[in-house]
Simulated assay, not measured.
Amino acid sequence: MIKFNRRQTLGLLGAAAATGLAAPAIAQNKKIVVGALRFTSHSGSFVAVERGYFADAGLDVELRFFQAAQPMAVAIASGDVDYAVTAVSGGLISLADKGAIKVIGGALSEEPGIDGQKILASNAAFEAGLTSPAQLGGKKFGISNAGSSFHYMGSRVAQAENAEMSFTPLQKVGAIIGALKSGQIDAWSIQPHIASALAGSGAVQVIGKISDYLPNYQVTTVFTSAKNASDEREQTSDFLKGFSNGVADYTAAMIDKTGGEEGVNEMVDLIHKYVYADRPREKAAPSIIKGAMRINKDARLNIASVQDQLSWFQSEGLVDNDITLDTFVDTSYVETYKA
């Protein structure tokens, strides 16, 4: 009996389609736009494009890049983008409350035992005594905007440490990095591929881990327009299929390391086309490797973490108290769990 690996099987299916032997999804060739950030955590989409998993699902995908979560949510609501992966934010929840968008799955997660998001201090603040999150009282914490995931993480850390600190909105990740390097803000939290690069260059100091405060944090979610979720169910399922296949390859290579060093290097080459593409591969690779975090298999969604985030936004007066999970989450597409 001849056995085929996954790639060979997909190749045979493609050949069957070419000869007219049934592949209605491929024949659709639907053009869709997928929003992304140039973060290692968006590798599921990158792999699905590069290895043809979206195409195999019948989707002609264009990646569109953003510099923060909020503009991506607005682009989904306006119809400029069809699907995206981003953190839960006050803006996203408010757009869902208006009937514009729906979360349909989970992506990046904090997981015990896997290096996750770091809490950083500016060199100036570190030298002045900010050597752990316990000293955040009275400090300035950088965020993109009020109601962002940075705001949520910083607030949860401050609450746990009983520290009163202020939040400085700077709109874009690049602006936050500049402010942290120059000492205009004292602290920030960010995914490890950025944190490790900054700390490795001596520009900032690592003073803690988000997983110590939010051990099972559902960092990012997969979302789409409410119209796509309700009226384009086949297309939405096809998107999740392609995305999940990309995630499976990424996880096998970067987290479980089933392909050994060769598998890691092959995946780094792919990701480098999108992350730190302006740097030589040898300089980008260490940050990409250190930035590898778990992305949920089959887009499973940690509904307990999403509920905690919603409750925090409501407690801060950033979204309406009448909003429920059903308002902005469609649980019909993927498995949900509580952790």
Rank of each mutant, 00 (worst) to 15 (best):
D115N: 08
K118R: 13
I119S: 01
L120P: 01
A121R: 13
S122E: 06
A124L: 14
A128D: 15
T131R: 02
S132H: 06
A134E: 08
G137H: 12
G137D: 15
K139Y: 09
G142E: 00
G142W: 03
I143N: 00
N145I: 01
G147P: 03
S148L: 03
S148A: 05
F150C: 07
H151F: 02
M153E: 14
G154T: 07
R156Q: 13
V157A: 02
A158W: 12
A158T: 04
Q159H: 15
A160S: 15
A160P: 04
E161P: 01
N162R: 08
A163M: 03
A163T: 02
E164R: 07
E164K: 05
S166L: 03
P169N: 02
L170V: 01
Q171I: 14
Q171S: 12
Q171T: 14
V173G: 05
V173D: 10
V173A: 08
V173L: 12
G174H: 11
G174S: 09
A175H: 14
G178S: 08
L180F: 04
K181S: 04
K181A: 05
S182K: 11
S182F: 10
G183Q: 09
Q184G: 07
I185R: 00
I185Y: 04
A187M: 01
S189K: 01
S189M: 07
I190C: 04
H193E: 14
S196L: 14
A197C: 02
G200M: 12
S201R: 13
S201M: 13
G202C: 10
A203M: 13
V204E: 09
V206M: 09
I207H: 04
K209F: 05
I210D: 07
L214V: 03
L214M: 07
P215Q: 12
Y217T: 05
Y217P: 03
Y217A: 00
Y217L: 05
Q218H: 08
V222I: 15
S225M: 06
S225K: 11
A226N: 08
N228Q: 14
N228Y: 13
N228E: 07
S230D: 01
S230I: 05
